[in-house]
Nucleic acid binder design. Structure first.
Lengths: 213, 213
DNA sequence: CTGGGGTGGGTAAGTATTCACTCACCCCTT
DNA sequence: AAGGGGTGAGTGAATACTTACCCACCCCAG
């Protein structure tokens, strides 16, 4: 690495990492500074206050929906609708797995939630963006006759992405305290059943296509 | 009220209300005491520490899945599968709307998340309980021949409840545009939804039944 | 060249405030 | 008299943020 990262970048990285691992409440200025390898005062040379650090992390470090969009537009007849939906479900699970724990913890601090929401509004986006994009894709496929004429694109998009979203919540909920040493991890079998190991994305994509009735 | 509520009950009520309205971070012992109409010291006459108050709220004040179960078992042939799924979707949206902001804010404090998860484990339940119950119901209907023989109950349950879950997240996320005054919220006029109008529960239930392919 | 001062980035050592929690002390009922 | 339920007034720890200072580097007048 010829160019070591600038201090502001290291601060944002540290804050992002702490948000993911130790949670919003334990992400203090002292911890951010320690993780970034600088002093607490240095934070305030680059950011007005702690909240600005968080807002910048939310704006710049969280993955957007760009990849999801590409996944949709890169299907010029090559792939079937089912293949495409499966791929989208996989990407959505990734996206939500990274986003959801941090987004969820915003509910602990409504002021932050509000500022983040306003920031998203200025960018003309929001958390429902993936769902809307997927609905638009499905409408195109409907116009092409590749899915049923009476299909409901919005409902289908809400179903597919909602399933991925909730699944990401479940895994984040069950993971919780991951790496931080509780000392004796020894019990091993703590009944923490991992979710069934099938290909969730494929199953869910198939079901939303074929229905169950 | 003929029987004024006991102090512990008032404390738990106050904590629950604060968790919903001002968030986990701003729910301090001082605020709980003020909302409960007692002194801070009184909290410690009835609870060992603040965490115990939160854990008790999570255990006792959050709605369980009982109503959802009844909604499913109360269908001895009377209602169609679609009607039943629609009813389940409505109840699920209610359940998640009340649960999700508080559950989400647990991600801000991994220690609390962990204790809550352990508490749920002792009760033999968890956040995936509704989905499993719905999947069992669908399997019964499949055995009865009321839905397709090759239907995937788990995937269908994950789709339907996931859609409701994510929708509850969206509304909770975009709430708060209301100005400071909370006003009188409980007047039963639930028409003010920011999301597009239409009967989401019905649309989503119909789509999971018929599919789109 | 030189050197002196402005500047951006850095720090150690605070400060005021808030937090969860405790303690000595008072009722009031039994 | 005894003791459960209640309180006002703290306590030490932690928090976000500030202050006073430092130093390497660049620009350019002398």
């Amino acid at each position: 690495m010829p160019t070591p990262k600038s201090t502001p970048a290291r601060i944002l990285d540290a804050a992002h990492e702490l948000l993911r691992t130790t949670g919003l409440a334990r992400t203090t200025t002292k911890e951010i500074a320690r993780a970034a390898g600088c002093s607490e005062a240095a934070l305030y040379k680059h950011f007005a206050n702690k909240e600005e650090i968080f807002v910048r992390v939310l704006k710049e470090r969280l993955p957007g929906v760009g990849p999801l969009l590409e996944e949709l537009t890169a299907d010029p007849g090559e792939r079937t609708v089912e293949e495409c939906l499966t791929a989208v479900a996989r990407r959505a699970m990734d996206l939500y797995a990274q986003t959801l724990p941090i987004a969820g913890s915003l509910f602990a601090e409504p002021a932050l939630l509000r500022r983040h929401r306003e920031g998203l509004a200025e960018l003309g986006t929001g958390p429902h963006e993936p769902r809307d994009q997927l609905a638009r894709y499905l409408r195109r496929e409907r116009d092409r006759g590749r899915i049923r004429a009476d299909a409901d694109p919005e409902a289908a998009a809400a179903l597919l992405l909602g399933a991925c979203f909730q699944r990401a919540f479940f895994t984040a909920f069950s993971e919780g305290t991951t790496t931080e040493g509780t000392g004796t991890e020894g019990t091993g079998t703590e009944g923490a059943r991992t979710e069934p190991t099938g290909d969730f994305a494929a199953e869910v994509a198939r079901t939303v296509l074929t229905g169950i009735g």
